[in-house]
Design a binder for these strands. Sequence first.
DNA 1: CTTCTTTTGAGAATTATTATCGCTATTATA
DNA 2: TATAATAGCGATAATAATTCTCAAAAGAAG
Lengths: 157, 157
Amino acid sequence: MSNTVTNFTQRTINYEKLLGDFKVLLKKNNLKFTIQREVILETLYNSDEHLTPELLHHLLQDKFPELKIGIATVYRTLSLLEDSAMVTSLSFGAQGKKYELGAKDHHDHLICTICGNITEFVDEEIEERQHKIADELGFTMQDHSMQIYGICKNCKQ
Amino acid sequence: MSNTVTNFTQRTINYEKLLGDFKVLLKKNNLKFTIQREVILETLYNSDEHLTPELLHHLLQDKFPELKIGIATVYRTLSLLEDSAMVTSLSFGAQGKKYELGAKDHHDHLICTICGNITEFVDEEIEERQHKIADELGFTMQDHSMQIYGICKNCKQ
DNA sequence: CTTCTTTTGAGAATTATTATCGCTATTATA
DNA sequence: TATAATAGCGATAATAATTCTCAAAAGAAG
Ligand SMILES: [Mn+2]
Ligand SMILES: [Mn+2]
Ligand SMILES: [Zn+2]
Ligand SMILES: [Zn+2]
């Protein structure tokens, strides 16, 4: 059990709970609950992918054309959600960031350098070592991110 | 020994060797050995920091004002060096990349979220686990990067 | 409703990075 | 060393990603 690599695909929180948390957060900070913020949260929730702001914006335009959500609102809301730790971002070697809802359990990423696909995993041994290392070096650890780059099964053919 | 966290500060290659390698690399690819490429390599070698292209450009302007090195040359040369695996880059949550000479041994990073300082470390246990994980998931691992974010000793006061 | 405040979309501005181009420096070779 | 061929250079224009500005619209509270 302690040596296995686990793949996450399941959500660990339901949408109603998530939305409730979001509303509480907003109220606590004197922010308003807007339709834009709601549909952005919902769209993130319903996506299993890691989304760029641009891709998220396209999804929103497709699903909610009547709202005409602006790209600035997407950026603003992603920042808000990230600051509140409701989403996390992943920055790649090259350009841009990708966001995902943080309502999943913590995990790290295996990224195919050819097709760009991302496999998620978590390894308890590594998680433990990270804490030990931060302690030893006098850091109060807040977060960490780890990416393994390689060529996936498909791309090896 | 196998449970210790090691801090790297020393170089593992001397400059003459590095420069020789660079010249070989250039010749092999029909690229020319220019004074700009040389001083960029030298400046990277003499810096212990992780440099942004912009900061590197400033350093070059200070040390070699007569060359009037352009920012485009800095970007071009960093890309060349990265493609040739002579430097590696680190991309942060927010904006931009930072580069460092890859002539040091491989290591990961502990980054202070307040002052931005970077501590380097390597942990053999983690390195091993990373290989195992890639194998298990059918990836041919090419590289990896790991950052631990936290608050450093100084900033805790 | 009315008032007060926050948020929004559009588009301008900014920042980081890359592309273009005419001139210059390097390299190979005679 | 002189010459010719070619790659690299700096300046600057162009792009791409992100942030800012601002007037109008929407949400919260009473
Ligand atoms: Mn993920
Ligand atoms: Mn480093
Ligand atoms: Zn792939
Ligand atoms: Zn610090």
